[in-house]
Every structure is written in structure tokens, then in C-alpha cells.
Simulated assay, not measured.
Amino acid sequence: MAFSTAKTKAWFVRINGSQHMFWLLAGLSFLETIILPIPIELVLIPLMAVNRQRLWAMAAATTLGCLAASLIGYGVGMVLFQSIGTWFIDSMGMQDAYASFQRFFNQYGFVAILTLGILPIPFQIAMITAGLSGYPVLMFALAALMARGLRYFGLAWLVHRFGNRVILLWKRHALMTSLIVGVVVLLVALGMQALASLVM
């Protein structure tokens, strides 16, 4: 695996050797979900590659960190949208994306959250929109857990299967893979929703 600077390599080695690696991963996932623009995969995949006996625990820690951040974002949308929520959307330049997702969410709810959690689109939009709309928090948490669990446990499986090559595969194909998986999940979920409505 390649690191761009000695400082980055030293930071990676420090995390890898830490007794609190799982907490650090959960914290990084929390920060990425809330505000950091740097994909956690840049750290997670190399760590998984050298800790293949702990792949699934690392995926679980990362997923739980994301879930905790998602619930805070939901709370911001529910309680503090007029202050923190609008400031965050404006400062991140998400006005158009927020308006578009709000229309999508109003129509599809759970499916919209699940899809956005997989697609390479800031998940903060889904968190704030769900909280603002009063969408049931347990359903929101379930959608976030499924979407991000698929993302991180999928990475763990890829590292288990392909080892160090996954970082190169991810850099080359992450966007296209996310789009394909997101579209497939959307189509399957909408199909199930349509089937359920026919049965009911």
C-alpha cells in the first residue's frame, strides 16, 4: 500500500498499533458522516488489508460510528433546522441537492434514505430531511444501518477476497460501483413497494 507522505504513514502506523483502533475508526466514521469531506475508505481499506483477522469487527465499528452521527444529524433536522440545519446546508453548498432530495424523500421515504446512503452523495442531506419531516426515527436508523452496513461490510468482503488490490479497485471504480449498487437497490426497493401495495 502506498502513502503520499511520511507523516501520513506514521499516522496510519499509530492507528494500526493502537489498542483503541475500533474506537478511532468509529470516531473517524462519525466525523466523515457529519462534516469531513475525506472518504473514510482511504484509511479503512489499508487498515483492513493488514488486519484481515479483524475485518468484520472493523466494518461493524465504522458502521456504528456512522449510525451515531446519522442520529445526531436527524436530531439537528428535527430540533435545530432553522438555525444549525440551514447554516450547514448553506455553508456546504447543498441547497440544490437538499431541495431535490426533499422531493424524492416526500415520495419514497425509507427507499430514499436507503438509496442515498449507498450513492456517492452527502448523507447529511438525508439526515436533516428525515429529522425535519418527523420521519420515524427507528425507520430512519434502520435505513441508515442497512445502507452504510452494505457499504462497509461490502468493503470488508472485498478485502477478504482480494486483499491489498482493493484500494486500487476502489480508487478506480468506487463512483461507478456506488451508482450501480444504488440504482439496483432503488429498483428492488421500489419493486417490493409496488408489490406490497398490490397485495394490500
Score class of each variant (00 low, 15 high):
A144D: 00
N164A: 13
Q95A: 14
I45F: 10
L80W: 15
S178L: 06
T129I: 13
V181K: 05
V13I: 11
L28A: 09
G93K: 07
F30I: 02
T129C: 06
Y98W: 11
M176T: 12
I118G: 07
G77H: 10
I89V: 15
L36H: 04
M94D: 01
F88M: 15
A189G: 06
I40N: 13
T177N: 04
I84Q: 09
P39G: 07
A112S: 10
S18D: 13
N164S: 11
G85I: 08
L71Q: 05
R103I: 11
A68K: 05
G117L: 08
Y135G: 03
M21P: 01
A61I: 06
T129S: 14
R151N: 05
A6G: 06
P46C: 12
V199D: 00
S100C: 00
P37G: 09
L195C: 02
G73Q: 09
L25K: 10
Q19N: 13
A156G: 05
F110Q: 10
G154P: 08
V111I: 15
G134M: 07
A57L: 15
R14W: 11
R165V: 02
V79F: 15
K7S: 14
L64E: 03
K9P: 01
Q53V: 09
Y108V: 05
W11G: 14
L114P: 01
L142K: 01
A147N: 03
Y108E: 03
K9C: 00
L80Y: 14
S18F: 12
L186C: 15
G93R: 06
V159W: 04
N106I: 02
T115V: 12
E32I: 07
L132W: 07
G17C: 07
V13S: 12
G85K: 10
G131D: 09
Q19K: 11
P120R: 08
A130L: 05
F104R: 01
W11A: 15
S4I: 14
G65W: 11
W23C: 05
L190G: 01
Y74F: 13
L186W: 14
A26L: 06
R103E: 14
L150G: 15
V183Q: 02
V137W: 12
A196W: 08
L145V: 00
V184N: 04
R165P: 00
P39W: 10
